[in-house]
Simulated assay, not measured.
Amino acid sequence: MALADTNSWTGIREELLRRIHDRIWQPGEQIPHEADLAEEFGCARTTVNRALRDLAESGLVVRKRRAGTRVALNPPQRATLTIPILREEVEALGRTYRHSLLEKDLRPLPPMLHGAFQVTLGADVLFLKTLHFADDRPYAFEERYINLEAAPAARDMTFEDVSANEWLVHNAPYSHGDISFFAVNADKTLSRKLDASTGAALFAMERITWTGPLPITHVRLIFAPGYRMRTEI
């Protein structure tokens, strides 16, 4: 791993994950102490500690006071969600897909996202609003921010022929991500865009993907009434 990649706790976490997944550290094996890892990566011990805490919270390592940190013998099994291409999702339902790009511009990241989507301070991000359709009926409304440091080619894309959703899946490979699901009540704007009654409960999700320590995109998707998500475990 390049030294530049270990300047942040997320970069160190990715390297520790690699060693666990590649069985460089076997299940149940004690891993090096924080001080030794900090010396190896050339960083502060607190940075290593943050990476190890994240792995412990995910259940991949077990930390005990004065006993060190070990690779978990039985890491938690979780359902895996792939990022769907909405065009394929709609076509799999036997419907005709199209999308409409409603807005596209460069702008500073909103302050409310700074904690979760950490782009370079002062850098503009690409903002898009897109409405996805199934058989000319609204399917999903999308608001998306793209970090141009992670996906520089997005700057020159029109996203009119290919949606940002589909383009990013094919052109901006991600190493990990966070996703949350929730319900929102349709306000006047969502009611109009998604052909929903005002106040109707709508299925929504927010997703952030990274490539190593770099965030790629933050997207908020709100689906028309009747949407149902399915996955395999």
Results as ranks from 00 to 15, higher is better:
R87K: 13
R87M: 10
E88T: 03
E89Q: 06
E89H: 08
V90I: 07
V90D: 01
E91S: 05
L93S: 03
G94N: 11
T96I: 09
T96H: 08
R98K: 14
H99S: 03
H99N: 00
S100V: 12
L101D: 01
L101P: 00
L101C: 01
L101F: 05
L102Y: 00
E103Y: 14
K104S: 13
K104G: 06
K104D: 02
K104E: 03
D105L: 12
D105S: 14
D105C: 13
P108N: 04
P111F: 09
P111Y: 02
P111V: 15
L113R: 04
H114T: 12
Q118S: 12
Q118Y: 00
Q118A: 13
V119K: 08
V119C: 08
V119R: 09
V119G: 03
T120W: 05
L121C: 01
L121I: 06
D124L: 12
V125L: 11
V125E: 02
L126V: 06
F127I: 00
F127Q: 06
F127S: 08
L128K: 10
K129T: 03
K129S: 04
T130N: 07
T130K: 06
L131D: 02
L131S: 04
L131M: 14
H132F: 07
H132C: 01
F133P: 02
A134G: 09
D135M: 15
D135R: 15
D136W: 05
D136G: 01
R137K: 13
P138C: 13
F141Y: 15
F141W: 13
E142L: 07
E142K: 00
E142V: 07
R144F: 02
R144W: 02
R144C: 09
R144A: 12
Y145F: 15
I146E: 02
I146A: 11
N147W: 14
N147V: 11
N147P: 11
E149M: 11
E149A: 13
A150I: 12
A151M: 08
P152N: 09
P152T: 08
A153L: 13
A153D: 14
A153K: 15
A153T: 10
A154K: 08
R155C: 02
D156E: 15
D156M: 09
D156Y: 06
M157Y: 06
M157W: 04
T158L: 04
T158K: 11
T158S: 15
T158N: 08
E160D: 14
D161A: 05
D161E: 14
V162D: 02
S163A: 10
S163T: 01
S163P: 07
A164V: 02
E166F: 04
E166D: 15
E166A: 15
W167I: 04
W167M: 07
L168I: 13
V169D: 05
V169Q: 07
H170K: 11
H170D: 12
N171F: 00
N171V: 00
S175G: 07
H176V: 01
H176A: 08
H176Y: 09
D178E: 15
D178K: 14
D178C: 07
S180I: 10
F181E: 04
F181S: 07
V184C: 06
V184T: 09
